[in-house]
């Protein structure tokens, strides 16, 4: 359960989040909007990577301003660029490193690592250098490395932006199979079919909040050229 309470945020004096209040309890939540509309900034607030200038963000009742560390254990985060999410030299080690401080025994850790590697089709690459995987495999690894810690909520910021259709479909499948609550930011609108709720952000505000089809229609309308000068962003 996520709650944003009248949050605002500015970078260098410019408002990028401009008064968002919303409660997110659904299992599948999409967030769409133009480049620069504030999606990533809002997403980073969900696990305390960004603290709002004003207002508060509550995750399972806890305030990110006070409990960021505990909240990060509950909220997994997947970014677009898999390369920068890989920390350790080999595939299995990278999955493992997130469990270093979990308090689990070595056997339990090995068990869990095996489990996710198998689930993500990476068990054949256990000891391979992670940076030599294909982009699709790297993103699967990033997802596996986050999910091995068993977060309650998963936030994905454009996880398929750098991937081809096949790998996008692979990530899409994995996401839809997850029991967790998922907040997905994406420009791949088709991924949101079947989602419970989709928010459209526009200039730091929620411009629409509802079913996927209606949200996409609203967003398409919002993005339609109006005869003015071409936007530069």
């Amino acid at each position: 359960m996520l709650r944003l309470d009248d949050i605002t945020h500015s970078y260098n004096g410019r408002r990028v989040i401009d008064g968002i209040t919303v409660e997110l309890a659904e299992r599948r939540i999409g967030v769409i909007g133009a480049n620069g509309s504030g999606k990533s900034t809002m997403a980073r607030m969900l696990n305390g990577l960004v603290i709002p200038d004003s207002g508060r963000v509550l995750v399972e009742g806890r305030d990110t301003r006070k409990d960021a560390k505990a909240i990060r254990r509950r909220v997994g985060f997947v970014f677009s660029d898999a390369d920068t999410q890989i920390i350790m030299p080999t595939v299995a080690e990278d999955v493992e490193v997130g469990l270093r401080r979990s308090g689990l025994s070595a056997a339990e850790i090995a068990d869990r690592v095996d489990g996710v590697l198998r689930a993500y089709g990476l068990d054949g690459h256990r000891d391979h250098p992670a940076h030599l995987l294909s982009s699709g495999q790297k993103q699967l690894l990033a997802l596996a490395s986050v999910l091995v810690t068993d977060p309650a909520i998963l936030v994905c910021d454009e996880p398929t932006t750098l991937l081809d259709l096949r790998n996008t479909a692979a990530i899409e499948r994995r996401l839809s199979a997850l029991p967790q609550q998922v907040v997905l930011l994406t420009h791949h609108l088709h991924m949101l079919a079947g989602y419970d709720r989709v928010l459209v952000l526009d200039e730091g505000r929620i411009a629409f909040d509802g079913a996927p089809d209606d949200a996409v229609a609203h967003y398409t309308e919002l993005m339609a050229p109006r005869g003015g000068p071409e936007p530069h962003a």
């Binding site: 990577l49 997994g76 985060f77 970014f79 999410q85 920390i87 270093r100 490395s145 986050v146």
Partner: peptide, 15 residues
């Protein structure tokens, strides 16, 4: 840029 993104990913993973 990579280092910043990596740092962020590490914080997000609790490392």
């Amino acid at each position: 840029r990579s280092a910043e993104a990596m740092g962020e990913a590490m914080v997000a993973r609790g490392i």
